[in-house]
Structures are given as C-alpha cells and as structure tokens.
Amino acid sequence: MNNFQYSRAADVADAIRLLAANPGARLIAGGTNLIDLMKENVERPSRLIDISRLPLRKVEETADGGLRIGALVPNSDLAYHPLIEQRYPLLASAILAGASAQLRNMASVGGNLMQRTRCAYFYDTATPCNKRNPGTGCSALDGLNRNHAILGTSASCIATNPSDMSVALAALGALVHIARPSGERTIALTDFHRLPGDTPHVDVNLGAGEIIIAIELPPLGFAQNYSYLKIRDRLSYAFALVSVAAALELEGNAITQARIALGGVAHKPWRSLEAEAALRGQAATVDHFSHAADLLLAGATARAHNGFKIELARRAIVRTLTQAADATPQSQSHKKIA
C-alpha cells in the first residue's frame, strides 16, 4: 500500500470540500474493494477521506410509496431489512448472493455501486490494461478471457461489472441520488454505470466532487414473482459467470410487466427494453421466455474462452423467468436449482 494522508469528513459538504481540495483523494466507507486495490498498487490515492461516520444509514419510506436507502447502509443490513425482505425480496436475494457475510457486514450500498471489475489483468500491474493505465491496451482480448463480457464490449475493454446488488437495482428501476458542490442530482441506476467504449477507465457517471448519498427504489417491488439466479464456479463466495434478476407482474398467466437484468456479462448490469416489451401481454411460457432471452442476447460476441456464457445466459434467463413466474425464487442457501 502506498503512503497516504487520512481525513475524516465531518459531513457531506465537508467530504465534497475535501475531494475538491485533494485531486488524488478517494472516499472510503467499507473499504472492502478499495483497500484490496491499494494493496495491489492498482489504486494509489494521496489521501483517503473517511465518510463511514456520516449520517447516511437510514432506510426511509418515500412519499410515493418507495424507499430511500442511505449510501452507507451496510449490504447485510439492507438485505435483512424488513421492508426490503417484504417489498423488494429480489434485492435482498441478490445482495445475499454476493461476497461473504463478513464483507456484506462491511460493504456500503454506495461502495457496492463503485466497486471495480475483478478482471485479473486490471489487478495485475505487470500487464497492460486500458482501465488501469489508459492507452496501454487490453490484455484480456487475447488472454485468458473465460470470465469476460459478451455484451457491450469494445476494442478497449471486455471487463465485467462484479456487483450482484446492482443487477437487482437495475431490474427494479432504482435511482441514484448524488450530492455535488452545487446541490444534488438524481440519475437512473441504469445510466450510472457506463459501457467501456474507448474510456474504460471511467466506470461510472460520477463527476469530480460528487458523492452518492442515497439509492431510491420506486414503489413497484415485484415481491410476488421474482428470482435472482447466480451461476458461478463454486456454490458460494464467487463472482458470477452469469447472473439473472427477473421480475414479473402477472394477471393470471399473462405478463403485464417484465424486468430482466443480467450480471457477469457486461461492463454494467444489462437490460433490454425490447426484450421486456416483447413479454408484455404474453403468456408466461418457456417459448416466450426463450424469445426474450434471444432479444437480451442479441449482438452477444465471444472471445476465445467465454463463448459458453452466451448459451449459459440464454438458459439461465429462461430458468430464472420460469422461477419468477412460478413464484419459486432461487434460494441463496439451498442451492438446488429448481
């Protein structure tokens, strides 16, 4: 770890001020990803601004019947929060599919959105990486790319976003509330993370001096018909090869609303409005789910080792939608896939 200075922010305004005054500084809350990256010399901040004691730990009901979640709510507290368990079980399930109990106790909601790819080349400072050192090239393109993206890739980067929580938030239509020197702004979660394009070093649409202060969930929680299915190399405590968050509103067997988001396959949680529109008004059948999977995976491309992900994703989408329609969501403890 490089030497760094340490400041404890007194409030959000103080944190913004400290960020502006220290261009090489980084915010720290749970630290589970940042400290790891600092130990690897991937992150070398001149100063850490500790925001972990700021009063951003509430889960509050909004006027329209949604929820506002403070950016510093620990992942475990959110997953086990009664209002999340009752109204947004898809989000609870996705959070519990990620990391370990210890890491979920430490990690904040805002930090989860900010976590960086686990691409091995991004971590290995001996190899070129456009995300770590812009302009040096992408080692994964012709390297070991079994874990890498199949959707939304670019010639500069094929890294994936590692978050499970963000996949559920994308499906639920969450908003990100951001504080900045001139006030506050709100952005859709699906617009918060970026595709790599030719600027893969910029993961998210967060400007200088901006801080995530809350996540907002809209009222519709899909609490009846949902499932989060995560496929990985071991049954727990591993990043997704493919994950699927599925949420349906049904009238009888007819789909009135569908949300599907994919993890492990792109630089951001992957949704297709076309696939979701195609399901509306249709019967909840495997044939229709397969068609939606085709639309979600339209344009998917593979490198040397990750072609299996396309068929894996196709089958996982159908399976997860079936679980959602049957109201038999995937258990994150009892691993048999129904």
């Binding site: 490089n2 030497n3 760094f4 220290n22 090489g24 070398r44």
Partner: peptide, 8 residues
Amino acid sequence: ADVTHEIA
C-alpha cells in the same frame, strides 16, 4: 494523478 509520498 497527484500521488504523494510524504510521510503521514
């Protein structure tokens, strides 16, 4: 950018 090596 702006990596410093001053002793904290």
